[in-house]
Design a protein around this nucleic acid. Structure first.
Length: 357
RNA sequence: UGGGGUGUCGCCAAGCGGUAAGGCACGGGAUUUUGAUUCCCGCAUUCGUAGGUUCAAAUCCUGCCACCCCAG
């Protein structure tokens, strides 16, 4: 009897092709759509409806059954509340990292497996290797789309019975497959923005949930150069949105280099980006996937998505880890994740608690 | 109300008689399952203002206005 798999389908091309491939491989495939954010845009149009319609179309074309589930409550409690509290604390959270552990590989996976599926699958660009009682998370073949960064906090046991059909494909191959098989999502634009919430005016969005407190913008020398509209709207290394123009006698751009929550001051630097470069950081909430770290070891790391890997030395201690950089790193930011790699394997990661300059 | 200086896009800033560089900001787009970064495109018929000289002025002349500095 064929093994059964439930595919998390978003209505995008990636999960469409994931379902397609599994079906071709002989699995008994069922599509499952997740609704995690209940809101319409300004015009009263709910993009989730359109996405679900795409799921229906694709599943129809593949001739597989499909259902939908609603985890909006869980998303709010376990991802969005964290998102807001991090911003309140002046940090720059990465909700999509938690979304994977707390939703997709949490309630969603549990739900799917409770429907007696043998496996669950998603359209993530990453690889997975099951064997000798351990599961390893691997980078995708398409380095430019690799999404292991977002999975660094997923517990190893949550990856059991998980399939990633897109592991060996590039994005263009995926689109080609969709097209060749007549899937309506073949040309659909890649989704961006916060997962499930989508792309939107970030400031306006945050404004709906958090009170903004304007304050001064100072240089590191203490010179007042402008006014900010609320520290939460800025992140380290940012240059857009400062509304700061030219400076007498100098050429260059302004960058956010520091936030002072206590005094509600945003610090900026003009031209000179050296204040953005740090030599180490502290990470906590460490999660290891298919890996048993020794007390101290060297590996590669990324401090944000879509950044080249860097050589680092990791030293574990009671409260987390000290991550030392061999090369100074630009704009390492509290709230983002330090994710560790050993050649093709994603070892896991932790949230950046503090940065050492 | 004596002397000197400066007034060019929101901010810096070229130009110094030949028909408005550039950077920053800002807007739009590309990239991107966070927020950023990065990349591309756009962005002064007009040079504080009113006259004058000239074929031609932001550039020369004159008045006025504003700001700055030094003297009072």
């Amino acid at each position: 009897m064929a093994k059964s798999v439930i595919v998390g389908m978003s209505g995008g091309v990636d999960s469409s092709v994931a379902a397609l491939l599994l079906k071709k491989q002989g699995y008994d495939v069922t599509g499952l759509y997740m609704l995690n954010w209940e809101e319409t845009d300004g015009r009263g149009v709910c993009s989730a409806d359109a996405d679900y319609a795409d799921v229906q179309r694709v599943c129809g074309a593949l001739d597989i059954p499909f259902y939908s589930v609603n985890f909006a409550k869980q998303y709010l409690d376990r991802v969005f509340s964290y998102f807001l509290s991090e911003y309140r604390a002046g940090r720059t959270p990465n909700p999509d990292v938690l979304c994977n552990r707390e939703i997709k590989f949490g309630p969603f996976r549990d739900y799917a497996l409770s429907m007696n599926a043998d496996y669950i699958a998603t359209g993530h660009y990453c690889g997975i290797e099951h064997g000798d009682g351990r599961t390893r998370l691997l980078k995708a073949k398409d380095a430019g789309k690799d999404q292991t960064y977002f999975l660094n906090q997923v517990y190893e046991r949550q990856l059991e019975r998980v399939l990633f059909p897109l592991a060996g494909l590039t994005k263009s191959e995926v689109r080609k497959l969709a097209e060749d098989n007549g899937l309506s999502t073949a040309e659909k634009k890649d989704s961006t923005g916060i997962c499930f919430i989508g792309e939107r005016n970030f400031r306006k969005f945050l404004q709906e949930y958090l009170p903004a407190q304007s304050g001064k913008i100072l240089t590191l020398d203490g010179e007042t150069v402008g006014e900010h509209i609320g520290l939460m709207y800025y992140t380290i290394g940012q240059r857009k949105g400062l509304d700061l123009g030219g400076k007498r006698g100098e050429e260059g751009r302004w960058f956010v280099v520091k936030k002072d929550l206590e005094r509600n001051v945003l610090y900026v630097s003009h031209g000179d980006e050296t204040p953005l470069y740090s030599k180490a950081c502290r990470a906590s909430g460490l999660n290891w996937i298919g890996y048993m770290p020794s007390q101290s070891f060297e590996c590669a790391a990324k401090f944000r998505y879509r950044q080249p890997e860097q050589s680092v030395k990791v030293t574990l201690d009671d409260s987390g880890a000290l991550v030392e950089f061999y090369e100074p790193q630009r704009a390492v930011t509290e709230g983002q994740y330090a994710v560790f790699y050993d050649s093709e394997a994603c070892l896991g990661g932790g949230v950046i608690e503090s940065v050492i300059y």
